[in-house]
């Protein structure tokens, strides 16, 4: 089986904290990997290292066998939905303009309507991005991440602040992308139930990787689930 991602001995030290410590795991092509871990566990840092946003990491990251330090071409085969997409509220671009940014070449312009249709936002195509609700914007950014038909989709906690109905729709879209179009998905989430339902692999991260494997093995192991819940609870209490 092809390995979509291989991460070996990845460590990231920020000036004040060590965010990732010797993390190693692999993702096969076609996998749906859920990454769980409390706030500050290093999930976004892991993604930043994979996505050319943070380059001072130690260790190696390979994408389909290629070390990502050697060439930036791999980025063209990745779709990324950030934790919170930041942009100027009155930036004069329509939904279609935003999705078009994800396209590598103008000749694929038909893909824009296709993907808007697929995400049920085609009627929003000519609206300004800043006028949309948070959930609608989220779907636009997912459309942008998918418009160039990536092999790997990376989603960083993409459902914060979205209503239950939209979340269900979003999950069914993810499931379809993964099973019908064979897109590999790496997805970080705080929603254990959703990870249980959707992902076939789970990685449990809290600076170090303390579990990685089939999701059944994780969710059938009460100790592991309890450990994870406690870790998040502690984090939760720190914040309050």
């Amino acid at each position: 089986m092809l390995k979509a991602v291989e991460i070996k001995n990845l460590s990231v030290k920020y000036p004040d904290v060590k965010a990732l410590d010797d993390v190693s795991f692999e993702v096969n092509e076609g996998d749906f990997l859920g990454i769980i871990g409390p706030n500050g566990a290093g999930k976004s840092t892991l993604f930043a290292s994979m996505l050319n946003l943070y380059t001072d990491y130690e260790g190696t990251i390979k994408f389909f066998g290629q070390d990502i330090r050697k060439s930036k071409h791999y980025l063209k085969q990745i779709g990324y939905v950030p934790q919170k997409p930041i942009f100027e509220k009155n930036f004069p671009v329509t939904v279609k303009d935003v999705v078009r940014m994800g396209l590598q070449s103008e000749s694929d312009a038909d893909r824009i309507d296709e993907i808007l249709q697929q995400l049920w936002i085609h009627e929003l195509g000519n609206r300004r991005i800043g006028e949309l609700s948070g959930g609608q914007q989220q779907r636009v950014f997912i459309a942008k991440a998918l418009v160039h038909k990536p092999k790997l989709l990376i989603l960083d906690e993409p459902v914060t602040g979205i209503d239950q109905q939209s979340i269900e729709l979003f999950y069914s879209i993810l499931r379809e992308l993964n099973s019908k179009q064979n897109i590999t998905i790496i997805w970080s989430s705080h929603d254990l139930d959703a990870v249980n339902k959707l992902a076939n692999h789970v990685a449990c991260l809290n600076r170090t990787l303390f579990f990685h494997g089939e999701s059944e093995d994780f969710f059938s192991n009460d100790d592991l689930v309890k450990q994870y819940s406690e870790a998040s609870m502690q984090e939760h209490m720190h914040h309050h």
């Binding site: 050319n52 935003v98 940014m101």
Partner: peptide, 18 residues
């Protein structure tokens, strides 16, 4: 055009798109 617009709209996402 795409490079200018994209990096103006969101630098981080533009970087991720190469």
């Amino acid at each position: 055009f795409r490079e200018l617009l994209y990096s103006t709209f969101n630098e981080e996402q533009a970087k991720v798109s190469g």
